[in-house]
Structures are given as structure tokens and as C-alpha cells.
């Protein structure tokens, strides 16, 4: 049986040749992402903005009366509700934010929740409540704070681990690649105004783990090659390492992708945001392992000495005398 080879043997793609333009593009994208977050803002769901989200099915209707619902709920005076299809055509999600003036009122969210549900139940006899999330301003503020800490802590912790296991240059490279991944993911959410919830933070934390897998595999090979080919110029060595691990990088990203896509297409509607964020992060993360994590090592002047710790000064001088170094 002839086996499938997604990546031909002995590829020799000069990845590093284009490092400067790619790096510049990446920096621009990172900056653009933060500009998008700053100007457009993230479309916070109830987790982070407070307020309530109702998920409902109109059991007797083929499609939910979305414009009507928007009007009915809007008339209650809690600002413009976000009413969207959620899953099947007769299923909707209705999102109402907490008015600013009641942000300090703990029970406000709860009060609004009951009013909206009972209004809809009166107006639509086939209204069936599937789920309801109500989050007060106090709790949503805590969630925002914890999300920032969790992201920062995760990035720092893994970068420190890489530093300890490899060298400081690798730690910086990994941290930068992660910063790139997190920034671009946030940027996409700001640009497309996809609902940003607790699940998305969970997805980003998972991305931090999986994006790093790629980086580690490339780094591991760089370390191995640094020991093996001491005299190879660094750009060449980095290219060689990326090419040698290319088959694995492609294959792993692919297995993750084909496992996740059915969940995106057929999975429960409540998981869409989470899975979409991970898929997005998968592309960004694979790219950053090759184009951010590796070139940074070049600029930070990694060399093979860091991985040959056992040689003492006398041995080294002897080798210099013999003209080996």
C-alpha cells in the first residue's frame, strides 16, 4: 500500500528568506488588532458586560419572529436588544445589556430577566425557554478582571517553562509568538464583532497550549540541529529545522482541524464561538511558530554554545588550539 504524503520528502523551502517582510506584516497585524480592540471594542456577551441572554424556541413556528421580538423587548426600555438566530431557524438568542445606571444595583440584572421572560411568554404562546444567563454588573466585572489575569499568567508561565527547558532566547521567542496569537484572535473578534464570552477566553487559553506545541516541536529540532551542525550558519539551520518538522506541523494542524470542523458544522450552537476561536487560533498559531518564533532566535543570536554546557575551559582551549573552533 502506498501511503499518503502530504508534504513531500526533503522539502527545502526558504522560509527564513522572507522573514523580514513577514515579520513586518505580523507586527502590522498585531498593531491593527489592538487598534481594532481599542476603537471597535469587543462585543462583550453577558458574561463580561452584565445583563441577560435568553435562548428560546418558538415551538409552533417554522421561523422565529426576530424583528417583532426586537421591538417587543426594545419597548421595555433596556436599550436595543441583540436578537439572533441560535441553532435552528425557530430558535433565538436575545441579549440585553445592563443599563449603565444600574451597574451597581446587584439585583437589577435579575429583575430585568424576569420582566423580559414574562413579557415574551405572554406575547408568544409557543415561546419555550431553553436557557437563560443572567449576570450582574458586579460578577461581570470580576470575570473581566480574572480573564486578563488568566491570559497574562498563562503566557508568562509557559514562556518561563520554555526558558528553563531551552534558553532565554527561546522563551522570548515563544512569548512573542503567543502574544501574536492572542492579539490576532482578539483582533478578529473585534473586527467581526463576534460575541466575546467566557468560552472565548477558555478557547484562547487552549490556543496558548496548542500553538506552543508547534513552537516546541520546531524549537526542539533547532536545539538538536544546533548540537549536530555546529558550523552551519544560523539562517540555514533554522530553515533546515522548520523544513524537517514541516510534515509533522502540517499533519498535526490538519488532524486538529478535521476533528474540530464537524463540531463547528453540526455541534451545539452554544459551542460555536469556542470552536471557531480555536480553529482561528490554530491557523494563527501554526503561522507564528514558523514566522515569529524561529526568526526571533536569529535576531536574539542563539548559538550552539548554550547547549554544550559540559565542556570546560581547558577542553575548549585545546579545541581552539587544534583549530576546531
Amino acid at each position: 500500500m502506498r501511503l499518503l504524503k502530504l508534504v513531500p520528502d526533503d522539502t527545502n523551502i526558504p522560509f527564513l528568506k522572507w522573514r523580514v517582510p513577514f515579520f513586518v506584516v505580523s507586527i502590522i497585524l498585531i498593531v491593527a488588532s489592538w487598534v481594532a480592540v481599542a476603537t471597535q471594542g469587543l462585543n462583550y456577551g453577558v458574561d463580561f458586560a452584565g445583563g441577560q441572554e435568553i435562548r428560546a424556541t418558538f415551538t409552533e413556528s417554522s421561523a422565529a419572529p426576530i424583528p417583532e421580538i426586537r421591538e417587543t423587548v426594545g419597548a421595555l426600555g433596556y436599550g436595543d436588544p441583540v436578537v439572533q438566530r441560535f441553532g435552528e431557524p425557530n430558535q433565538v438568542s436575545i441579549r440585553v445589556r445592563l443599563p449603565d445606571e444600574v451597574a451597581d444595583d446587584k439585583e437589577a440584572a435579575d429583575r430585568i430577566a424576569e420582566q423580559i421572560t414574562s413579557t415574551l411568554q405572554t406575547n408568544y404562546p409557543d415561546f419555550q425557554l431553553d436557557g437563560r444567563d443572567t449576570v450582574s454588573g458586579k460578577v461581570s466585572g470580576e470575570f473581566r478582571e480574572r480573564a486578563v489575569y488568566a491570559l497574562l499568567a498563562a503566557m508568562l508561565a509557559v514562556a518561563i517553562y520554555i526558558w528553563v527547558r531551552f534558553e532565554w532566547q527561546f522563551g522570548v521567542g515563544a512569548l512573542f509568538a503567543l502574544f501574536h496569537d492572542v492579539s490576532l484572535t482578539l483582533g478578529m473578534f473585534a473586527l467581526f464583532q463576534i460575541e466575546f464570552s467566557l468560552q472565548i477566553i477558555a478557547a484562547i487559553l487552549a490556543i496558548i497550549g496548542y500553538s506552543l506545541n508547534d513552537t516546541i516541536v520546531v524549537y526542539d529540532r533547532i536545539r538538536e540541529n544546533l548540537k549536530k551542525y555546529r558550523k552551519m550558519p544560523l539562517p540555514e539551520l533554522l530553515d533546515l529545522s522548520v523544513n524537517e518538522t514541516l510534515a509533522r506541523t502540517v499533519m498535526t494542524s490538519l488532524t486538529l482541524l478535521i476533528a474540530l470542523i464537524p463540531l463547528l458544522l453540526f455541534g451545539p450552537a452554544s459551542l460555536f464561538g469556542l470552536v471557531a476561536a480555536i480553529v482561528l487560533g490554530l491557523f494563527v498559531g501554526t503561522y507564528s511558530s514558523v514566522y515569529m518564533a524561529a526568526p526571533i532566535l536569529l535576531w536574539l543570536k542563539v548559538n550552539s554554545d548554550s547547549f554544550i554546557p559540559r565542556e570546560n575551559v581547558a577542553d575548549r582551549q585545546e579545541r581552539i588550539a587544534r583549530g576546531e573552533l
Binding site: 437563560r132 444567563d133 449576570v135 460578577v139
Partner: peptide, 11 residues
């Protein structure tokens, strides 16, 4: 005071 509620119907 109820400061967070998450309800999911069994269906």
C-alpha cells in the same frame, strides 16, 4: 441577592 443565574432547559 441573585447576582448570577444560568438556566438550561432539559431539552
Amino acid at each position: 441577592a441573585v447576582i448570577e443565574e444560568r438556566t438550561v432547559g432539559p431539552d
